[in-house]
Amino acid sequence: MKVTVKNLCRRLALTALGFVAAAAGASEVVEQKIDSAAHDFRIVRLASGLHHPWAVAPLPDGRFLVSERRGRLALIEDGQVKYLDGVPQVSALGQGGLLDLALHPQYGDSHHDWIYMTYSKPGEKGTATALARAKLKGAALVEFEELFAQDRYSHPGRHYGSRLAWRGDGTLLMTVGDRGVTPERAQDRRDHAGSVLRLTATGAAPADNPFAGDESGLDEIYSFGNRNIQGLVVADDGRIWASEHAALTGDELNLIEAGANYGWPVATRSKDYGSGQPIGVPSMPGVRDAKHIYSGRFAPSGLAQVDSNYFPGWKGNLLAGGLGSEKLLRLVLRDGEVVDTEELLEGELGRIRDVRQGADGYLYLLSDSSDGGLYRLVPAQ
């Protein structure tokens, strides 16, 4: 941007706005203008001091729910953070803890004011990825109900998944990681590990799931052979997109379909951490290939589709967050294929854990650190 008196005054005004907002505990402009191919945008910090936040759920009244991995659920209003009572006990060892959040599709109707959450549930034989729901009342969760827990508890700490996404038919998708110790579990359809599940709003298995009533697979499984999905979105056209952690490189963007096998660990572009040698083969019959392989060690977490009048040039695109890479990528889709990518952020926010579009049309990100933040992307004007 050319430096003129007008632009200099604009910069000073934005900086002053950021200082005033920070002092008031409200929003703070942290990046005044970031260039991109279709839309220049600004980054506004809405809250800070969050301890390894994992998921954000924007509420219809303008407040936000944010899960922290160590087992706290924050309610954020005007930059102020309040922690809620009534949160389930979690195993916060390693990658475990309080994980994803999703509102019922009819949230706002008093009969459907359910908040769904996933977490690592402790038990006598280890931990399991679990799903529960509750309602928000004042500063607490009430009417808590555990709806589902994976069938096999195992050593705590690794590869829980775990993302949620609603389909247009009212069913809920939930990802479960391979749990890290025995990757081959992802190829066993009688084990929830390494899969995408499809559930009803009360945690049951729909009768039309691909293996329902079939002894070859568990009723809840929708797809399998998935290592550790931490980005999940149902697009406007009904397609299900998932960002999946590989091992050493080879992170994938997959198009999830009923009954499909996505290969882990027998077919993957990933390499072994210790030896650096390929794991399995790149592709094989009967296995769905990834639609996109993220470059380098991307470490995907958080995935959203843009459908916002604030960003018309991004409509229909996916935004994918990266942890170790500290990147935010824009993926351009056409007929179920990735035809172009653009790097929107690299390092400005650190590790990006979650990416969401709110009902207000703005885009929201969480940074993953012991002093994490909630951020809003807005057009630069």
Rank of each mutant, 00 (worst) to 15 (best):
M1N: 12
V3C: 11
V5A: 14
K6G: 10
K6N: 11
K6L: 10
N7H: 12
R11T: 10
R11P: 00
F19S: 15
A22C: 10
G25P: 07
G25E: 11
A26R: 13
S27M: 06
K33S: 08
D35A: 14
A37D: 13
A37Q: 15
A38T: 00
A38P: 05
A38V: 00
R45M: 15
P53T: 06
A57G: 12
P60A: 10
D61M: 14
G62W: 04
L65G: 01
L65V: 08
V66I: 11
S67A: 12
S67G: 08
S67C: 08
R70W: 00
R70G: 01
G71Y: 02
R72S: 08
A74Y: 09
A74N: 00
L75G: 06
I76S: 00
D78S: 13
P88I: 11
A92Q: 02
L93V: 10
G94A: 01
G96C: 10
L101Y: 02
L103C: 12
Q106A: 14
H111E: 15
Y116C: 08
E124W: 05
G126S: 14
T129V: 11
A130N: 09
R133K: 12
A134C: 13
A139M: 13
L141P: 00
L141Q: 05
L141T: 07
E145P: 07
E146I: 03
R152N: 07
Y153V: 04
S154M: 05
G157T: 09
R158N: 07
R163I: 06
W166Y: 00
D169E: 13
G170Y: 09
T171R: 11
T171L: 05
T171Q: 09
L172K: 04
L173Y: 02
T175D: 07
G177K: 01
G180N: 10
E184L: 10
R185D: 08
Q187E: 12
Q187P: 11
L199T: 05
T202D: 15
T202P: 01
A205D: 03
A207D: 14
D208I: 04
F211D: 03
D214F: 12
S216Q: 15
G217K: 05
G217P: 06
I221H: 04
G225D: 03
N226F: 07
D236I: 05
I240V: 15
W241C: 07
H245N: 12
G250Q: 04
G250K: 03
G250E: 02
D251N: 15
E252R: 14
L253D: 09
I256E: 06
G259K: 13
A260Y: 06
P265S: 15
R269P: 02
S275F: 08
P285S: 15
G286L: 11
G286Y: 14
R288K: 14
K291F: 00
K291M: 01
H292K: 05
I293G: 01
S301K: 10
D307C: 07
S308V: 07
N309V: 13
F311D: 04
G313L: 10
W314Q: 09
L318M: 08
L319K: 08
G322Y: 03
G324F: 02
K327C: 05
L331R: 02
L333G: 01
E337A: 14
E337I: 03
V338E: 00
E343C: 15
L345C: 02
G347E: 12
I352A: 01
D360Y: 01
D360T: 09
G361R: 15
Y362H: 14
L365H: 02
L366E: 04
S367I: 08
D371M: 10
Y375S: 09
L377W: 01
L377A: 09
